[in-house]
Amino acid sequence: MMMMIKTMSKSLGSRPVRKLTFLAIMLVVLAGLSACGEKTDNSPADSRLIIVGFDGMEMDGCWCAAQLQQIG
């Protein structure tokens, strides 16, 4: 980061206007980096625990009792 700032500083020279331009660019860059830091991590998960709920599903008393009991 510091290397990048030094390089940009040299290339922009020392005139006040250029300094202001440099500062403005840096603010934009820093804001961008800051925003990147706040971004959600959307990288792929190595492995997942997946939980699926079926509310009220049963194994007794319903038409599927026989079906599900056969599995058990």
């Binding site: 991590d41 959307n42 990288s43 792929p44 998960a45 190595d46 492995s47 997942r48 625990l49 997946i50 939980i51 699926v52 709920g53 079926f54 509310d55 009220g56 599903m57 049963e58 319903c62």
Partner: peptide
Amino acid sequence: KNDSEVLVGVFVQTDRVSH
């Protein structure tokens, strides 16, 4: 999306139809 180590979802329609 595959970007969570834990993924939970509940389907309530089984309950409502049974009711």
